Simulated scan of single mutants.
Amino acid sequence: MSVNHTAPEATGNGRNETEEERADRKWGELIQEVRVAQTGVQILFGFLLTVVFTPRYADLGDTDRTIYIVTVVLGAAATGALIGPVSLHRLVSGRRVKSQAVEWASRLTFVGLVLLLATMTAALLLILRVATHDGYVPWLVAGVVGWYLLCWFLVPMLVRIRHTTK
């Protein structure tokens, strides 16, 4: 059994941790983030799955049914991407590839967030179309999507750019 006895090194972020310690920390942080996103997508996906069994579903027009089907498929894809890191960890656990697993899990999480954004957008579009039938629905949806983009991507990227050390 080989053990890495490498002395802890500063990683440039003020931490004094080994590569394995850093991978463990990043894994823990990532899993906490995934838990938050998984809860949202699972609640939304569960709701979406029940819609087809309601009497109102039969009254939907072709466009709204198409939006519904696209929304369910996006929700299923988001669920898969956000649960993927758990499966990845389970399948590679003990193989001494944690830092690579963290990289791939991070990618899956990002894809899951993008798919969750698309799912929420499509669900909002469908709900507002059915609830109002008004021409301003696309504008409302665009405003909410803009808000999601600001909160989920723009602000984090601005913080990243502003506080990245070279």
Rank of each mutant, 00 (worst) to 15 (best):
V86T: 15
E103R: 14
S87R: 12
L113D: 09
P85Y: 04
P85N: 05
Q100C: 07
L113M: 14
L113E: 12
P85S: 02
A81R: 07
V92C: 10
T109E: 07
L108D: 09
R96D: 15
Q100N: 12
R95V: 03
G94L: 00
V111G: 06
V86L: 13
G112S: 04
V114K: 00
T109Y: 05
I83N: 11
S93W: 15
R90C: 12
H89M: 10
Q100E: 12
A77C: 08
A78Y: 02
S106V: 09
E103K: 15
A101E: 04
H89V: 07
V86I: 15
H89F: 11
G112R: 00
A77Q: 04
T109R: 01
L82S: 01
S93N: 14
V92L: 14
H89T: 09
V114Y: 01
E103D: 14
S99H: 12
T79C: 08
V102A: 02
G94N: 00
S93T: 14
L108E: 09
A105F: 05
P85W: 03
R107D: 02
L88P: 02
L113I: 12
T79D: 09
E103I: 12
S106K: 10
S106D: 13
R107I: 08
G84K: 09
A81M: 09
K98H: 07
A101G: 05
G94V: 00
Q100K: 14
A77D: 02
A81D: 02
A105L: 04
G80R: 02
A105Y: 02
E103G: 09
I83C: 09
V114L: 05
L91I: 11
S87N: 11
S87I: 14
P85R: 06
R95S: 06
F110V: 10
V102Y: 00
A78N: 04
F110Y: 12
I83H: 11
G80N: 00
R95E: 01
V111N: 06
L108S: 09
T109N: 06
T79P: 02
E103V: 13
L82Y: 00
E103C: 08
V86F: 14
V111L: 13
A81C: 11
I83P: 06
G84I: 07
F110S: 11
S99T: 10
R95G: 03
L113R: 08
V102L: 01
V97F: 03
A105V: 05
L108F: 13
A81I: 03
S99G: 07
G84R: 11
I83K: 08
V114A: 06
Q100R: 15
L82H: 01
V102Q: 03
V111P: 05
S87G: 15
K98T: 02
A101Y: 04
K98G: 00
G84H: 10
K98P: 00
I83T: 12
A105D: 03
T79Q: 09
V102G: 01
A77R: 04
A101W: 03
A105T: 06
S106H: 11
A81K: 06
A81Y: 05
W104S: 08
G112L: 03
